[in-house]
Amino acid sequence: MPSARHPDTLKPPPRGFTLMEVMVVLVLIGIITSMAVIGFGGGRADSLQEESRRLAVLMQLASEEAILTARPLGLRFDEEGYRFLQYEEQRWRVLEEDPQLRPRALPEFLRLELLLEGQSAEPAGLLAQGEEDEDRLLPEILFMETGELTPFELLIRAEEVEDHYRISGDINGVLDLQSRGE
């Protein structure tokens, strides 16, 4: 005897995805994309902004530390980055052990242009075939114990990025960071 089929058994099997399945896949794609962006970072423009802000904050810290310790500090730039110096025992020494004011390297694609009294000052670089001459190590920017500093403008640029940053300081110790489009 033929069995009577129930109307639900005559339906074809469902095809495609439910709305819930599509939503779950979209959420997963969003999470994976977010992780990829965080992992790769924002690129050169973000690095330019981060390094410019870091340098401005460290310069402010050096200025305040010079006042608090009643000893002048200095800042010296070279092709690879920058170093803070402290005047002690009649000479300038690199602050190697200071956790904040330690020497810092810049990413290879960042370029610094220092202007002192409106004139371009080339980075001093290393002396005597890669060996530092401690007796001739001089800062390009001074942070005095009185709060004064060497007036300067520092332009920070990144290769393949239109914007640049400008840190300026006046003799009264006022530091300013500005972002500029080219």
Rank of each mutant, 00 (worst) to 15 (best):
P2H: 15
S3F: 15
H6K: 15
D8R: 14
K11G: 05
P12A: 15
P14E: 04
G16F: 07
F17Q: 10
T18H: 04
T18Q: 04
M20T: 14
M20P: 14
E21R: 06
E21H: 06
M23H: 02
L26A: 10
V27H: 04
V27D: 04
I31V: 14
I31S: 04
T33K: 02
S34W: 03
M35F: 10
A36F: 01
A36L: 14
I38W: 09
G41I: 04
G43P: 08
R44E: 07
A45K: 14
S47A: 13
S47P: 00
S47L: 11
E50N: 10
S52C: 06
R53L: 09
R53A: 07
R54H: 08
R54E: 13
L55V: 05
L55R: 05
M59N: 02
M59D: 02
M59R: 01
Q60F: 07
L61C: 01
A62W: 02
E64Q: 09
E64R: 06
E65T: 14
A66Q: 03
T69A: 08
A70M: 06
P72M: 03
L73V: 03
G74D: 02
G74M: 02
L75P: 03
R76A: 03
D78A: 03
R83D: 03
E88V: 13
E89T: 12
E89W: 12
E89M: 10
W92D: 05
V94T: 15
D98R: 08
Q100C: 02
Q100V: 04
P103F: 12
P103H: 08
R104T: 05
A105M: 08
A105W: 06
L106Y: 03
P107I: 07
R111Q: 10
L116H: 01
A124Y: 00
L127E: 11
L127K: 10
Q129N: 14
G130E: 02
D133I: 09
D133M: 09
D135T: 11
R136Y: 01
L137K: 12
L138V: 11
L138E: 15
E140V: 02
F143W: 05
M144A: 12
T146M: 06
G147Y: 00
